[in-house]
Design a protein around this nucleic acid. Structure first.
Lengths: 186, 186
DNA sequence: TAGATCATGTAATTTGTTACATGATTCG
DNA sequence: CGAATCATGTAACAAATTACATGATCTA
């Protein structure tokens, strides 16, 4: 069975970038090199195959820029199906244990939400994420309370770091929620 | 060219867990299911192949627990070569742009350091990490200053989240450094 | 005796990376 | 004219996941 939808986050990041304006593979590489979105490699071996895969699935469409015939650029833009797939990805709720795994996927998704989802929907998704995160932080805290005493020093530091990062993440999500409510007064 | 050393972090996490006491694949699965080290899947398809690969490279050694002959467990422990490979992994300095990519690899490495490295070496590695992190935070902050104004709301939130997480990470590293100095007075 | 847990594995696939390879254009 | 940048790609591989598959043992 050949799946038609991509699963990783890189294809969707690319889709998000191509949803608004057309860009070339090289443009995308520069973005992955120069902006804080650099959680992926900017090497050609990452971007070009991903673009081809998206093209094969008809989620993006390439148009060869003929203005400079000797150095042609392939300008990609998202198709309607591509924008639909993007929205579907944005809408994925973060529930339960997921929050432990794709830690910062929500941040990446949030970045593209304003342009595609309603404020109400963004708020709903953020709230869901907050709930899962609160629960997870509690779990890790409980683990820490039980095990910290018998851990070697550096392991204890590592665990404290984990808790601190989760705490910071939660703090940020709460702030986002606050801002969302502030902007859409009931 | 066939590489002899593993590259991902999962094998080293396993190696770290097997360095002190022997465990079965099932024991490892439980650890990845029940502890905050759960950044990896606890599915058998993750752990058992990784164990086999480590065994093939002579970094771990299996002994079949014959106490229950009808339900044998394979008890793995790290070999001398395995412990050496672990130490080599722990010693990898985090420099420059690396810090953006394997964000929390340092946390995982730190967890195993107390048992394998001298306090002075732990401090040196932590300091290096701090330097790289400070620089990276500055870079992202500078980007934020330049681009925040023209970004859509949710993208701005995402960027702020990125900065907040980096900040929290830095904060933690500074605290670790402080503790390290506190424990080893000059 | 049925269901949960113990215990280990394989197959197929996806995802992403590194390293290699090529050539055009622009700018000093 | 040489170096940096623009621009696209391939090959080989590593890393990890999901889904599938099997059977033993313990406990209510």
């Amino acid at each position: 069975m050949v799946s038609t939808k991509p699963a990783g986050v890189l294809p969707f990041l690319i889709l998000g970038l191509l949803a608004d304006e057309p860009r070339s593979g090289y443009d995308l590489r520069k973005i992955f090199r120069d902006t804080p979105m650099a959680s992926f490699s900017d090497s050609p071996g990452s971007i070009y195959p991903a673009l081809r895969a998206l093209e094969r699935r008809k989620l993006v469409q390439a148009r060869t820029d003929a203005s400079r015939p000797l150095r042609p650029r392939r300008l990609y833009r998202a198709t309607a199906a591509g924008r639909a797939a993007l929205v579907e990805w944005l809408r994925q709720p973060v529930v339960g244990h997921d929050v432990a795994r794709d830690a910062d996927a929500f941040g990446a998704r949030l970045a593209f939400m304003s342009a595609r989802l309603s404020p109400a929907e963004i708020e709903r998704l953020t709230e869901l994420h907050a709930v899962a995160l609160r629960e997870h932080v509690e779990g890790v805290r409980a683990f820490a309370r039980q095990h910290t005493a018998i851990m070697p020093f550096s392991a204890r530091m590592a665990l404290e770091g984990g808790v601190a990062l989760l705490q910071a993440r939660l703090c940020w999500v709460e702030r986002v929620l606050h801002e969302l409510k502030h902007r859409r007064p009931r």
